[in-house]
Nucleic acid binder design. Structure first.
Lengths: 338, 338
DNA sequence: GACCAATGTGACAACGTTGTCAGCTAGCGT
DNA sequence: ACGCTAGCTGACAACGTTGTCACATTGGTC
């Protein structure tokens, strides 16, 4: 990785001063065409590439055309989709390299990654937060007015955020179920500590309350197995719900499994928040309210670019709507004989 | 993103020379404890962070503790899992930051990303190739002996590769089917141009030939719909296969859908190469031969670290075994009445 | 008291690049 | 022939850091 050619090497090869080479590689005016040609062929011959570190060092206020995104978990398909849209937008709209790293859910590592990226100087940061509050490195950068945008989750601090309309989406999904005549509706949630799950629960509750229906709420269903068990238990009791709202991915997977095992998949209505890989592979297909990862990533890119361009106005909160996609499971009507 | 404090700023604050501050932040010996303490509190007060660009520039041969991985598609769960293992290993074993970017499948963009990362100086590169042959930037870096490891696909050039045992895995999966008594076995493949699909086909063919069974081969099944149609057609003919080997993800999804629609999921055996999200969600569960993403990522990290540490031996090819996971669908025996 | 080693500290160069400025040449008008 | 301008080109400083070396101070030894 060493002995790369420098401006000097190219200059020696072309028989000019290194400043002239600099001019050529930066397309600056004031180089005669003959010399420029000689320099260009020397550049090609040696395979010269500008040293980004030196460039950044010299012009410390200039755009680096690099932003970083710090993940909680890059294997999460939703995070990957957001990242992908974010990256595509920045690459095409601003010729900016998006680099990323993942903390695998560890808050300390998360903050350390922020630190490593700031050491390496980037134009801005996108963060999918881990935990409730920003770590010291993130806080320092916020104080320093480094362009930072938080994606998907509340940072627990006053800063730019791009997030889904968890409340509105859950509310719409629940209303959708209620509009088909259900009077007892189950809520299947994962970690109650999660702000987004709390908001989905609030949306669910608002919809249920405005209709006078009866909610049945279960939290802590962080794995399909737990959700499966919870649904099995819910449906076996008296006054079992006739419709279920799965507030999260894995809870929905467990619910689907339980309904199929019990053979009641055409009887109990189900709407799932978030994208479901298996939505179309089961019968009936699952009605979902997927977060719009594409819109989130794109919005985050736009917010960040505006900050990088010097916008110093108050932090904004950009809310991306969540649209319901009816596929069958959410349009089932309650059956009498339970 | 500007006016960050430098060594000089900290030095002024602490009333020492900037070189002394440098010594303190690098834990070099030869600073009295009193001075060191004063410097450390100045560092904390100003929120000083070392400028990585300047450091890299000064010590151009030193380790940067940064490697890059260039994806074809970061939203592909398999690639994400490989990336995740790769990153975890480098972070924990070598305190190295893994940065990544995705080309979204565009070969030109892929090579451009390689170029951008080399401009920014990294210790090494991991590449999940796009297309058949490396672009000019990648070729230049290979010539320059930059540590580079190719993951999952053949680079079409002599270089370090870490890849799954496509041939062996397909061979074992097919033998597994044959050992349950099947004599007519179908192969469901996607793009025949793909080297890994070719290898899986070769493994399938070897297993079939050594047993004297009859193969039925379909290529081009790049979407579930196409695979669904192909399976429907295959099973409707005379001499229909009694077992299927799906050589790829999406082909397997289509096959599952077709079998369930035809109600023959307990009759036609099926083994799928690669991980299947729905493997456990259908009845019978799908026997799969998943690539070991964890092992691939880890092996790639190890190969790359060895190169970074100066190993200059011949390029190696590291093959990661593919283990069969029996779940039910692959253990079905052929039934008489077709 | 003179010498020496050990210790702590700072001055300075260098990394590869870009910005500033000065110098050189050619071409033009007088 | 002379000066002037425009157009090229190069010398040099600076970015923030680390490596090298020299200097100053201390304490111990003969």
């Amino acid at each position: 990785m060493s002995n790369r050619p420098t401006l000097k090497d190219v200059a020696a090869q072309a028989g000019v001063s290194f400043k002239t080479v600099s001019r050529v590689v930066n397309d600056e005016p004031g180089v005669s065409s003959g010399v420029a040609e000689r320099v260009r062929s020397a550049v090609a011959e040696l395979g010269y590439r500008r040293n980004h570190s030196a460039q950044v060092l010299r012009r410390s206020d200039a755009r680096l055309h690099t932003v970083a995104i710090v993940h909680a978990d890059a294997t999460n398909p939703f995070a990957a989709a957001v990242h992908s849209a974010f990256e595509r937008h920045l690459r095409t709209a601003a010729d900016t390299l998006v680099v990323s790293a993942s903390s695998h859910g560890d808050a300390g590592e998360h903050d350390r990654l922020v630190d490593l990226f700031t050491e390496r100087r980037v134009d801005g940061l996108a963060v999918i937060p881990v935990g409730d509050s920003p770590g010291p490195a993130l806080r320092r950068e916020l104080d320093r007015n480094t362009p930072i945008v938080f994606i998907d989750r509340e940072p627990g601090i006053d800063a730019d955020v791009v997030a889904s309309d968890h409340h509105g989406g859950a509310c719409a999904a629940t209303r959708h179920l209620l509009s088909h005549g259900h009077r007892r509706v189950g809520f299947l949630g994962s970690r109650e500590q999660s702000e987004s799950i709390r908001q989905r629960h609030a949306g669910f509750t608002d919809a249920v309350e405005e209709s006078g229906a009866e909610p049945v709420v279960r939290f802590g269903l962080t794995t399909p197995d737990l959700a499966d068990a919870a649904v099995t238990e819910l449906l076996s009791g008296a006054d079992a719900p006739t419709a279920l709202f799965a507030a999260q991915n894995l809870a929905a997977v467990g619910a689907v499994r339980a309904l199929h095992r019990l053979g009641r998949q055409r009887e109990i209505a189900l709407v799932a928040f978030d994208h479901l890989e298996i939505a179309d592979l089961v019968e009936p297909a699952i009605t979902t309210a997927p977060q719009n990862a594409e819109a989130l990533g794109r919005a985050a890119a736009e917010v960040l670019l505006r900050r990088i361009d010097g916008d110093a106005s108050e932090p904004t909160r950009f809310v991306v709507p969540v649209e319901l996609i009816p596929r069958g499971s959410g349009e089932l009507v309650p059956v009498r004989g339970a």
